[in-house]
């Protein structure tokens, strides 16, 4: 591939993403995109985090039978929030928040992985967003990366002394961008097709998502901060059930 070709495919790729607004759903890796070995690799990486979440859920259930309905219902709420269309001013289209950042700061990152895995399975099966063979990759990018980054940032900022509103904003923003970066990594590592092409593929996918994901991350941060502020102001007492049962 010569230099002119590189420039042109890059232009082609970026414009294609910008001009196909449906691809703003592309944080879900579609069924069939990943070859078998990469699909299994991301499943293997996601499983320990899912296990951690299930252990946490069991501990919570042992201390209160209210835990299952609470986690399930918050999961439904986050599923619905993640389907809400957000207008993206730069791309001229609507996209959807990831939601795992908000879930992580409300119910904790490991439970957020459990909820994300279920939401992703339901979305794959009944809404055709994502896929079954790509479920592991999607759980890792949205559930694991999104939740742990959000919770880590939130916890750190509150500890350092930032207000919880700023912390919730950064949690939403960085969880979205972490999901976006990990999805790009997953796609480029599986599809680069040979030596030397990983770098250009990764950069081109990052840049291709950028017109949607950079503003979407900022908007998700705002949404996350406002939703958290609302819950905190109205019924923060109800979140007490998630404090029981030990570690994250």
């Amino acid at each position: 591939m010569n230099g002119k070709n590189k420039l042109l495919w890059f232009f082609l790729f970026v414009s294609a993403f910008v001009f196909f607004p449906r691809v703003s759903f592309a944080m879900h890796i579609s069924e069939g995109i990943l070859p078998l070995k990469w699909a299994l690799f991301w499943f293997v990486l996601a499983v320990p985090f899912l296990y951690l979440g299930l252990v946490r859920l069991r501990r919570l259930t042992e201390s209160s039978s209210q835990a299952i309905p609470m986690v399930g219902l918050v999961g439904s709420a986050v599923f619905i929030i993640s389907c809400m269309p957000i207008p993206i001013p730069v791309a001229g289209s609507c996209s959807h928040p990831v939601g795992s950042g908000l879930a992580a700061i409300i119910i904790g990152p490991s439970l957020s992985v459990v909820v994300s895995s279920i939401a992703l399975l339901l979305q794959a099966l009944f809404l055709a967003h994502g896929g079954l063979s790509t479920l592991g990759a999607n759980i890792f990018s949205m559930g694991v990366a999104g939740s742990f980054v959000a919770y880590g940032v939130f916890w750190l900022m509150v500890r350092v002394g930032f207000g919880w509103m700023a912390a919730a904003f950064m949690a939403g923003l960085l969880s979205d961008w972490a999901t976006y970066a990990v999805t790009s990594l997953e796609l480029s590592s599986a599809l680069h097709g040979g030596s030397g092409a990983f770098g250009p593929m990764f950069v081109s996918i990052l840049l291709a998502f950028a017109p949607t994901q950079v503003p979407l991350g900022i908007l998700e941060g705002v949404l996350c901060a406002m939703a958290y502020a609302f819950v905190r102001a109205r019924r923060f007492d109800l979140l007490g059930v998630f404090e029981k049962g030990g570690a994250t």
């Binding site: 209210q66 918050v74 986050v78 809400m84 957000i86 406002m226 609302f230 109800l238």
Partner: peptide, 22 residues
């Protein structure tokens, strides 16, 4: 954005209250 933020909060609060009743 303001409306979506409030709506998200409403959805979470309603889900928590529903969870208690359920």
């Amino acid at each position: 954005l303001n409306s979506l933020g409030v709506l998200s909060g409403v959805v979470i609060v309603k889900s928590l209250e529903q969870a208690q009743r359920t």
